[in-house]
Amino acid sequence: MAAVLTAGELRKGVKLEIDGEPYLITDFEFNKPGKGQSLYRCRLKNMITGIQFDRTYRSGDKFNSADLEEQEMQFLYSDGENYHFMNMSNFEQIEMTYEAVGDASHFLSENLLVNVLLFQGRPIGLSVPNFVDLQIVSSAPGIKGDTASGSTKPATLSTGHVIQVPLFVEEGETVRIDTRTGQYVERVKV
């Protein structure tokens, strides 16, 4: 449920609803000139479009917090245009556009549990686990004798995303990836 906030409650990280859209305060500054009124300068980021702008509020201004909730969902499949998920609490299926899924699409494998961010019940983004295991579907063989040099080669994941892996990693193997950096962590035995 959206709550009513006063200007004094604005902080970095607070999420507001403005003109029917959710905004995140990414930067915040309290200012109070002399004996004048308090001013609250916010940098706001639209949580759907990513567009940012600055706005200054005064004490007395009131806001609705953005009606946001996170819901655990299972990734089912992509039909080329949309990504389909199942809500694990009510088993309803939802779909999200490529734009809403964003870079998380690099790491979506079938049955992966993700957290979908809902604004007024509408999916607007998702977060994947910090570490995911994905299969390498294609990668050139490593060069013999170069296994310890720290060199890397490109490898295509089952999602179609390409990452850099050490030379000893082979096609068909499963690797663990840190989704925050997009980097290879280790090989995993399946």
Binding site: N31, P33, R41, T56
Partner: peptide, 14 residues
Amino acid sequence: DTDRFDLDMSQKVQ
């Protein structure tokens, strides 16, 4: 106007 004075003092003058 107090609002205008405070805002400009804070964001343009100071």
